[in-house]
Design a protein around this nucleic acid. Structure first.
Lengths: 228, 228
DNA sequence: CGTTTCATTGAGTCCTTTCAATAGTTGTGG
DNA sequence: CCACAACTATTGAAAGGACTCAATGAAACG
């Protein structure tokens, strides 16, 4: 797709390159988002927003993938979520963002001005309902993340693969957009352990790993038996 | 306080004994809650709501303490939250509850009909804002729970004590309403490990344990050094 | 084609769990 | 009020799982 690109450096304005908006469609919420949102291109590893910054915008991934994360006092990084195509992030931020976000791969993100949508939510019940629904989705995700972290290493890796597979376009195979360190920081493990568990799952016939980024699900039963 | 008590057995109606409402106060949200809510007494270990049930109500703890939890397929229980006096739970449930809840100790809980509050939220911006705020609080809690679960056993126990102390009426000492198994199921540890970490923290001079339910915080520095 | 980064694998250590025994607490009935 | 039972909590010893440190291998980049 053609994109007119503009560079930004101003405070409070999204970092990256802007492209021109596309046609609106669907519900009143979707139409609103499409008209208010500005598609912005972010290169790999470029920050989209930072923890503690004023949350002027929230975001919807158009293409690519985004990670949201927190840096702990001891320097460790906990990845809160991987956000794939069509998924929202930052909806739940109140005055400031509770996390940082950056592009895992080159990505396009719809940047949506929060104040406009919140104002509309007071007039349009459907918009209010959608906002609430997105926040509930985010909460459910955080809760299932808690359930993930009490499992064993193998269960976490298996559950992670099933989670990614459920969101992948192709059935039965996953193209992981993130590196091992990202997976480790999401699952609360080390990269070595992630690597070992993937190798174990491959040995057991649950998956194949043609290369480090591509996973083919061979036996969902085995995976589910581990991943719960 | 005097209470008129009624027993329930009907479907969709709160289990427990009802008492008569108290005077309203504060914001429009608080006044609404007070007028809509019905105080119900729950004895220790009595279920308040069950995972998967229609979420006709949400709840506010008046006295005592409530645990919300999920039972996993393998039978393990993960406690999502301990809800203390004046804290809400179940606000984020959409059509069905995402968790079960029961009373840790004998408790009184304000049972609030969701439909009434949601209807009012469409007319009163302040009510809508409060509901959204409660959902954001719940999300932040879930996210900090994730951060808790990637820590070491000692860090988890220390952080748990600080978390409880922050909500306790008395400064520097905590009366734990829950047993070791509850703590273990909240922290993703075994009761033995919880016990050992508490003993370690006492040996290090961070806390005193006059009895198993009472904790006196002696050195917050040591605790914070662990609990991050 | 060399350099750099990323991923895998191995060996040993440390931390948490498991299993088991003991101690303490609570509640009940004689 | 005491004795016993049942439950809860603590402590110990051994096993298992994940981490650390280190080396090797593979892929990406210039």
């Amino acid at each position: 797709m053609l994109m007119e690109t503009v560079r930004f450096g101003l405070q409070g304005v999204p970092r990256g390159r802007i492209s021109i908006a596309r046609p609106a469609s669907g519900t009143s919420f979707n139409r609103l988002i499409e008209s208010v949102g500005v598609p912005v291109a972010y290169s790999r590893d470029v920050e989209i927003c930072g923890e503690g910054e004023p949350s002027e915008y929230f975001y919807k991934v158009i293409s690519g993938a985004v990670r949201t994360y927190k840096i702990l006092v001891d320097g460790r990084r906990q990845i809160c979520a991987f956000n794939m195509r069509s998924e929202y992030f930052g909806v739940e931020s109140e005055n400031t963002h509770g996390f940082s976000a950056d592009a895992i791969a080159d990505s396009r993100v719809l940047v949506i001005k929060r104040s406009v949508v919140l104002a509309e939510a007071e007039l349009d019940t459907e918009v209010a309902r959608q906002i609430r629904s997105l926040m509930i989705d985010e909460l459910k995700r955080a809760q299932s993340h808690v359930l993930l972290l009490i499992k064993t290493a193998k269960e976490r890796v298996a559950a992670f693969l099933l989670e990614m597979a459920a969101r992948a376009p192709a059935k039965g195979e996953v193209e992981l957009p993130m590196c091992r360190q990202d997976i480790a920081d999401y699952l609360g493990l080390t990269i070595e352990t992630v690597s070992r568990m993937l190798a174990d799952l491959e040995r057991k016939g649950a998956i194949s790993l043609p290369n480090s980024r591509r996973v083919i699900l061979r036996d969902r039963e085995i995976l589910a038996a581990h991943g719960g």
